[in-house]
């Protein structure tokens, strides 16, 4: 019965979620990962590092990382140092795309999701926080953080 309800809910959600989410690249979640690149191409780690450091992309509000010159880093969330050793690229990708699938109580925003949000300001409505290309760049960069 519980499964039936869950399935019904899943159906209903997929139907309502579809239009907005259609603007994004399709992806497949396998287990706790998105194994394939959102764009079909690998990201660029140097661009990814720049994206992580840029304040408006919000990463360092909560996270710190191996950035000795960066004064303003957060401590709400684990350091990004060693992220590439802790997680595979596919796991990193899902955690960036929609960490709430793994932990509904997470404070980590879903960087590649536009549905299921409330009162998004007009300037951001219908847009993911990062583009698919940016997600791939960040994944490629985080994968290099081995220690």
């Amino acid at each position: 019965m519980k499964f039936m309800l869950t399935a019904l809910l899943a159906n209903a959600l997929m139907m309502t979620a579809a239009p907005a989410q259609d603007a994004l690249h399709r992806f497949e979640v396998v287990g706790d990962a998105i194994p394939s690149s959102l764009t079909g191409a690998p990201g660029d780690p140097a661009r990814g590092r720049a994206i992580v450091l840029k304040r408006e992309n919000t990463c360092l509000l909560c996270h710190s990382g191996p950035f000795p010159d960066e004064r303003f880093q957060g401590d709400l969330s684990p350091s990004l140092a060693g992220a590439g050793a802790r997680w595979s690229e596919g796991q990193l990708r899902l955690r960036l795309v929609d960490a709430s699938r793994l932990n509904p109580a997470t404070i980590m925003p879903s960087y590649y999701r536009v549905d299921g949000l409330t009162r998004v300001a007009p300037a951001w409505r219908g847009k993911p926080i990062l583009t698919a290309e940016q997600i791939e760049d960040v994944v490629a960069y985080l994968a290099t953080l081995r220690e």
């Binding site: 304040r55 919000t58 360092l60 509000l61 909560c62 303003f72 880093q73 957060g74 401590d75 709400l76 709430s100 404070i107 925003p109 879903s110 949000l117 409330t118 009162r119 998004v120 300001a121 951001w124 409505r125 847009k127 926080i129």
Partner: peptide
């Protein structure tokens, strides 16, 4: 609420005293 999908309480209750940036 919002694109970052946070509630007030996520910062001001759950993470009070922590450092945001």
């Amino acid at each position: 609420q919002g694109q970052l999908n946070l509630a007030c309480g996520h910062c001001h209750d759950d993470n009070r005293g922590q450092r945001l940036a």
